[in-house]
Write a protein that binds this DNA or RNA. Structure first.
Ligand SMILES: [Mn+2]
Ligand SMILES: [Mn+2]
Ligand SMILES: [Zn+2]
Ligand SMILES: [Zn+2]
Lengths: 143, 143
DNA sequence: TCTAAATTTAGAATAGTTCTAAATCTGGAA
DNA sequence: TTCCAGATTTAGAACTATTCTAAATTTAGA
């Protein structure tokens, strides 16, 4: 069961993006709306460079600084999550806002979301450990 | 300058380090032995900079390039593991060579080894996923 | 329309790491 | 021993991802 939070893959209209930004307290500039069209919709775990590459094709002119600024603002506003994985230096951005894990296909480099219902973890730690968050990365290949 | 007074759990003698390096096919130079005294023994998840800082106190003169070279060689030789975690840019090096997980104390920044028997994971993935490795980072605080 | 504040931008700065190429060591061969 | 080819060490340059700086521009709204 999903669709409780917004599901990615369905593109939001510029108007929907605009109102989302506004209600998150982010001024909806043309650059920000353009970047959101990509990172809140079709992109799956893009890096800043990939966002820049997409923007270069879809927006008259946008600077790398604005890409970084906007991604940071979206993360701060809670509209995007930032992940850093061991296999690359670059941050990746995720429009899946629910708590989830990741599978790295070592053959292709592709990152795939693993929803929490696809695995269960049983902790047997001493009670002195207070766990607030758990990040799991599975690595392997997919046939 | 030496600091022989601390007796961490299993400190190897310079001779033991030397034979370990030799049997791993690594030429045991003075710099490498010095670095090993730290990273194979008392250090817990040090960064390259921390290794450099220790070396500056315990070896006449050592360059940062040699620290990085040596850490890389030790990792390649299988005597050390390198981890990259989301909360810092710097790699950390680990002399615990068994497969294990980590707990990050968000209050102190301390990384603590979590042995596999301290948690169990049940995967319910489609059989197309071939998992080769699993990296788990727990975040929280310890009382 | 006007203006203060927000945003965008190019380029400089930064941090961690790797690379380069010259100096220095080292294990054997002679 | 002496010698030397190859390994190692080193200082500093280069590199990459990201952040910072400060000037130009856009924007909201009075
Ligand atoms: Mn960031
Ligand atoms: Mn780096
Ligand atoms: Zn994800
Ligand atoms: Zn560890």
């Amino acid at each position: 069961m999903k669709a409780k939070n917004q599901t990615p893959n369905h593109c939001l209209s510029p108007n929907e993006i605009e109102s989302r930004l506004k209600s998150a307290g982010v001024q909806p500039t043309a650059q920000r709306i353009a970047i959101c069209r990509f990172v809140l919709c079709e992109a799956k775990h893009p890096t800043a460079e990939q966002v820049k590459a997409w923007a270069d094709l879809n927006f008259p002119k946008i600077s790398l600084a604005t890409v970084y600024n906007t991604l940071g603002i979206l993360v701060q506003a809670g509209l995007l999550k930032e992940y850093r994985f061991p296999h690359t230096e670059s941050s990746v951005y995720d429009n899946n806002l629910t708590s989830h894990h990741h599978f790295l296909d070592e053959a292709t480099g592709e990152l795939i979301d693993i929803e929490p219902d696809q695995l269960s973890v049983n902790l047997k730690l001493k009670p002195s450990f207070k766990i607030k968050e758990m990040e799991i990365l599975l690595k392997g290949t997919r046939s």
